[in-house]
Simulated assay, not measured.
Amino acid sequence: MNTPQSNSIQFDQPIGHSVGGFTVGHQATMSSSKAQGTITGLKHENGQLIVSLFFAQPQPVDAPQGALCHYFHLNWRNITSTWRPAAAA
């Protein structure tokens, strides 16, 4: 997977694409760290809905040596809330 610049978001589906209450382009909170990211993609994998999130600031990964990552692919149960991003000023 190519890693984009830290300030750019690449969407796997068009903004507004929705599955199971999740919408691409909306914000979401990751339950393990309470970090807030942008939903970039939604897919079904092994009978589960997987939500892809992008974080402007890299987040810790459950790995040794303090690894950080901008993108996460999480089971929908690992998302605590979602909401529409604030309107652009």
Rank of each mutant, 00 (worst) to 15 (best):
N2H: 09
N2F: 07
P4L: 13
Q5S: 08
Q5C: 00
N7K: 07
S8Y: 09
S8I: 07
S8R: 12
I9E: 07
Q10F: 14
Q10T: 14
D12Q: 15
Q13N: 09
P14D: 10
I15C: 04
I15Q: 09
G16A: 01
G16S: 02
S18F: 01
G20C: 10
G20S: 14
G21W: 02
G21T: 04
F22E: 00
T23P: 00
V24P: 04
G25W: 06
H26R: 05
Q27N: 08
A28S: 01
A28V: 00
M30G: 00
S31V: 11
K34Y: 06
K34S: 12
A35Y: 05
Q36G: 03
G37A: 10
T38C: 08
I39M: 10
I39F: 11
T40Q: 10
T40W: 11
T40C: 13
G41D: 13
L42Q: 02
H44L: 14
H44P: 08
E45F: 15
N46S: 15
N46W: 15
N46I: 12
N46Y: 15
Q48T: 09
L49C: 10
I50D: 09
I50Y: 14
V51Y: 08
S52W: 13
S52T: 15
S52A: 14
S52D: 12
L53W: 10
A56I: 04
A56Y: 12
A56W: 07
Q57K: 12
Q57N: 10
P60D: 04
V61E: 07
V61N: 03
D62C: 06
D62H: 10
A63S: 13
P64Q: 09
P64E: 07
A67Q: 11
A67D: 03
L68M: 11
C69A: 14
Y71G: 09
F72T: 07
N75K: 08
N75F: 07
N75E: 07
N75V: 10
W76S: 12
N78V: 01
I79A: 02
T80H: 01
T80M: 04
W83K: 11
W83T: 02
R84L: 04
R84D: 02
P85S: 06
A86N: 06
A86W: 03
A86C: 01
A87C: 09
A87E: 15
A88E: 14
A88Q: 15
